Amino acid sequence: MIDFGSDRPVHRQLADIIRADIAAGRLKPGQPLPSETRLMQQYELGRVAVRQALGVLRSEGLIVTVKREGSYVRPQVPIERVILRVAAEVSARMPSPDERKRLNIPEGVPVLVIKQPRQTERLLPADRTILVWSENGQ
Rank of each mutant, 00 (worst) to 15 (best):
Y43K: 05
Q41V: 09
V90A: 03
P75I: 09
E135R: 14
K115A: 14
V48H: 13
H11V: 01
D21M: 15
I22A: 00
M1C: 10
G137A: 06
R26Q: 14
E135M: 12
M1L: 13
A92S: 14
R8L: 14
A24T: 14
A15D: 05
S71E: 08
L112Q: 08
V109Y: 01
Q76M: 14
A88L: 07
V82F: 06
R51F: 09
G70H: 05
R128N: 12
L33W: 00
V109E: 05
E36N: 13
K28W: 06
R122A: 14
E69N: 04
V77S: 14
I114W: 09
P9Q: 11
T65F: 06
V132P: 02
A88T: 04
Q76C: 12
P9V: 11
A87L: 10
L39V: 02
M94A: 10
D16W: 00
P97H: 05
E121P: 09
E36R: 15
M1K: 15
D98R: 13
V48A: 15
I17W: 12
L33C: 01
G25W: 07
N136Q: 12
V111E: 04
L14D: 05
V10W: 08
R68W: 10
K67W: 04
R100H: 06
E80W: 04
Q76D: 15
A88D: 05
V64Q: 02
E80G: 00
Q31T: 02
V132D: 04
V56N: 03
S134N: 10
P106K: 00
I83F: 05
R81F: 10
P9W: 04
E80S: 08
D3I: 01
E107T: 02
L62P: 00
L123M: 15
R122L: 15
G30N: 09
G137Q: 07
Y43R: 09
Q138N: 13
I83R: 12
A24L: 13
L57M: 04
V109F: 01
P29C: 06
G108L: 05
Q119S: 14
E36M: 11
L103S: 03
L27C: 03
I105K: 04
F4Y: 13
L14F: 07
L112H: 05
A24P: 03
V77N: 09
I105E: 00
L112R: 08
R100I: 05
R51I: 09
V90T: 07
I22W: 04
L57S: 03
I18L: 13
L54Q: 02
R74C: 04
A49L: 00
A53M: 01
V113N: 12
D3F: 06
Y72M: 12
P32R: 13
P9F: 07
M1P: 14
Q41Y: 04
V111M: 07
L103W: 09
N104L: 10
V109A: 01
E99L: 03
D3M: 03
R100F: 04
V82A: 08
V111C: 05
A23Q: 15
A20T: 15
A53K: 00
R74Y: 00
R74W: 01
A23V: 15
A20F: 12
E121Q: 15
D127M: 10
Q52E: 12
